[in-house]
Design a binder for these strands. Structure first.
Length: 666
DNA sequence: GCGATCAGGT
DNA sequence: CACACCTGATCGC
């Protein structure tokens, strides 16, 4: 659970994912995703009241998050204060202190976080340097190198601080099977079961939270069926999800939940199911992990006669986090979660090793306050990375950012005894139990058993006996296939893991969201149209089939702006259309490579774009192009160039410049 | 009555 | 050992 207090040292005037206490005074709010533990205070009366009296306070988030948030009536009062931003599209945001008029400009970029629909990380660039707030994230090894806007030309941006989702930053959670692996394993299990007869039904025992949607959509695709869920409202603008879920109970795959959370019965679904008896298995998504030296085993574990746990994680594993950090090499890392059993000091200490060694850079002259670093050629966690360069100095074409490290999967953090070629293992190292084997602490393999017992009360003890090997003999002929599933970790699973280690990245580049599943790109699920349950056959949206989207920068499409422009924020201006490389930093940094976009040219581009749409307050091109020769307002001071361009930005954003300057001149 | 907090459960 | 969430009890306003 996030214990992040809401503010970053560098930019204390913005609040992220916390909306209570001190955060009530923030000048702008940011929501990384729509999970309750990141929304504390968001519906509080104090904040509500503040909004009433404020013209400038906004909540920034992704389009999908906005949609999910507003689908809950408790947050409806945010409607006029939410500014949805496109992914990977640097946006200038001006924080204004309404009392003093003091202003601060930031360039904020939303980066996909892979945690749940709409989840993003916030890259904030301003006077205090570039900082990255990760929110909650699950990124696979190598993903950081694929995020364009973490780079400046061919180099990794100089990230001062990372505010990190450290949920699994603990060697015990060294490895978590990849999304693809887990998905395939679940598919196999589902396949095996529902193919037996139409009465054979699978119940996905999911928590009440966003994040399982990609599981639903993939299963639905694979089996040409829809998944039964309780409610569809939140997905009404997300055809890619909506088309795969249903409130019609007549389907073989369910993810419905009963408010009273009754125990799972192998003959009855939470929704009541059909009038005739069904053969149901439950699959409970759970995080499974494997220690550094643990050989990986099962991705699916049978926990009872009709119940299974399947590996599923919303968060990056220890090694994934390390990969991420060693790529970015921030100067500071602040954990936002302290895994229990650890102290904040533990985690911070552990994280120190991932921080850039500043001693080497401290002596370097940094005329522009930013320094770029070439990306490490090879990911080793050692120190030989003092290879920073001055801005604009060397343009070594290191730009092939992807796929290099995939060939050498885990070398990152566990040097010599990398357990890479996984071999089947015998111990009960499955999920939810630690099976840690990080060097110092002993195994505690035994624990596995008991927690397994706990968890499903329904079935009494037998699962205990199922444990590992002997499952086979365990009952019923009907099972036949199951142990196969169980074993699955050893065979299918692994190979898959391996390959995915090797080529993980590329498949994402194909932009397909289907079965061989790269991390979902939820924003591509989004449309402005409101669809209904039955409109399943309308892939009208911005799906992966759209050729114009690079999979990495999958944009939410211009059409969004038709509807949303009206509510588009005053103080924010998209600085780029989301395609070029980081233009943001060209603003802050006079950067070498293709810095075609400075704030103003970008502004123009933006002006053109929205000039096509009807909108009262948006600037027209002619407004835009009149740039620096407007007469000054009668009794105002003649603004300097900076102020002026600033003014223009605000004009462009449709702000009420008069009022604002009034208050500002205090 | 509402919110915030905690305990307990899934 | 998780996670995200819900419920219900308690306390304070």
């Amino acid at each position: 659970m996030s214990s992040f207090a809401g503010r970053m040292k560098e930019y204390p005037n913005m609040s992220l994912d916390r909306f209570d206490r001190e955060n009530l005074h923030a000048r702008a709010y940011f929501l990384s995703h729509c999970h309750k533990d990141h929304m504390k205070g968001l519906k509080g009366p104090l904040l509500k009241r503040k909004l009433k009296f404020s013209l400038t306070v906004k909540l920034y988030c992704s389009f999908v998050t906005k949609e999910l948030l507003l689908s809950n009536p408790k947050y409806a009062f945010w409607e006029d204060h939410i500014v949805a931003l496109e992914l990977e599209s640097p946006t200038l945001i001006t924080l204004i202190d309404e009392a003093s008029g003091e202003r601060e400009e930031l360039v904020v970029t939303l980066l996909p976080a892979g945690h749940c629909p709409g989840s993003v990380m916030f890259l904030v660039e301003g006077a205090q340097g570039a900082v990255l707030y990760t929110g909650d994230f699950r990124l696979a090894k190598g993903d950081a190198s694929r995020i364009e806007l973490l780079h400046s030309g061919s180099r990794v941006k100089d990230i001062k601080s990372v505010y990190l989702d450290s949920t699994f930053y603990d060697p015990r959670f060294y490895q978590i099977p990849s999304r693809e692996t887990c998905l395939h394993a679940i598919q196999d299990l589902v396949q095996d079961w529902i193919s037996r007869s139409v009465r054979h039904t699978v119940w996905l025992n999911c928590k009440a939270a966003y994040g399982y949607e990609y599981l639903f959509t993939n299963l639905a695709n694979e089996f040409h069926t829809q998944i039964h869920v309780n409610n569809l409202d939140m997905f009404k603008k997300m055809p890619e999800i909506l088309s795969h879920v249903t409130t019609d109970r007549a389907t073989q795959i369910h993810a419905c939940r009963h408010p009273k959370g009754e125990d799972f019965l192998a003959t009855r679904l939470p929704c009541g199911g059909s009038s005739t008896p069904l053969n149901i298995i439950s699959i409970k998504p759970s995080t499974m992990w494997f220690g550094e030296r643990t050989q990986r085993t099962k991705v699916i574990v049978r926990t009872g006669a009709s119940s299974y746990r399947a590996c599923f994680s919303f968060h990056s594993s220890y090694s994934e986090i390390k990969d991420f950090l060693s790529y970015l090499q921030p100067i500071n890392i602040y954990p936002s979660v302290v895994p229990i059993g650890r102290t904040h000091a533990d985690v911070t200490e552990l994280l120190k090793s991932m921080c850039r060694d500043v001693s080497s850079s401290a002596v370097v002259y940094r005329p522009l306050g930013t320094l770029k670093r070439t990306r490490p050629e090879q990911q080793t966690h050692d120190v030989d990375r003092a290879d920073w360069l001055f801005e604009g100095a060397d343009l070594a074409p290191v730009r092939k950012r992807v796929m290099m490290q995939e060939a050498t999967p885990t070398t990152l953090t566990n040097p010599p005894d990398d357990p890479l070629p996984f071999t089947p293992l015998v111990t009960g190292d499955y999920m939810d139990c630690t099976e840690s084997n990080d060097d110092e602490e002993g195994e505690e393999g035994e624990r596995g058993g008991e927690e397994r017992d706990l968890e499903e009360g329904e079935r009494g003890g037998e699962e205990r006996d199922l444990e590992e090997g002997e499952r086979g003999d365990l009952e019923e002929g009907e099972r036949g296939g199951e142990e196969r599933d169980l074993e699955e970790g050893e065979r299918g699973g692994e190979e898959r893991d391996l390959e995915e280690g090797e080529r993980g990245g590329e498949e994402r580049d194909e932009g397909s969201v289907s079965n061989s599943g790269p991390p979902p790109r939820w924003e591509e699920f989004f449309t402005t149209e409101i669809l209904t349950d039955s409109q399943t056959s309308q892939p009208n949206s911005c799906s992966h089939t759209s050729p114009s989207h690079s999979p990495l920068t999958g944009s939410q499409t211009p059409e969004l702006f038709v509807d949303d422009f009206v509510t588009l924020p005053s103080p924010s201006i998209p600085l780029s259309a989301g395609r070029g490389p980081s233009q943001a930093d060209s603003m802050l940094i006079q950067s070498e490579d293709r810095c075609q976009g400075d704030a103003l040219t970008n502004l123009e581009a933006w002006g053109e774009e929205c000039g096509n749409h009807t909108n009262q307050s948006e600037p027209t091109e002619s407004q835009m192009s009149s740039d620096f020769d407007i007469p000054s307002t009668p009794d105002s001071d003649r603004p300097g160039p900076d102020e002026l361009s600033d003014l223009y930005r605000r004009l462009a954003a449709g702000e009420e410049v008069v009022t604002r300057t009034g208050s500002q001149s205090l």
